[in-house]
Amino acid sequence: MSWIDIGAIDEVPLRGARVLKTNVGCVAVFRTGPDEVFAVSDTCPHKGGPLSDGIVHGQSVTCPLHNWVFDLNTGQAQGADAGHIATYPVRVDAGRIQIDGSVLRQRSVA
């Protein structure tokens, strides 16, 4: 693991998201609770909708384009829809959000 600081937790609205630009594409950083964050691909596998613009509920997000719902833990589409988005290790340390840079790099190689 190589943790990269990407910002303060307060910069992401509660039950909201912000976008992180990376070499593997846009990553959506979600804040589902005061100290609960997730990072997943920002791109819905259905029609490419920006997931960071979706409604965040529980530990899930609903795509703003066609209401696909993804579990942020697993990246799996819920309900009748079949699809998967990449998930990235992310953590909160002393009020700062950190993402695992090694994974982002690995994926860029692959």
Partner: peptide, 14 residues
């Protein structure tokens, strides 16, 4: 303005 910008841009750091 910041709410509409990326939280961070790792492509630049790389």
């Amino acid at each position: 303005v910041e709410r509409y910008q990326p939280l961070a841009d790792l492509t630049l750091e790389a």
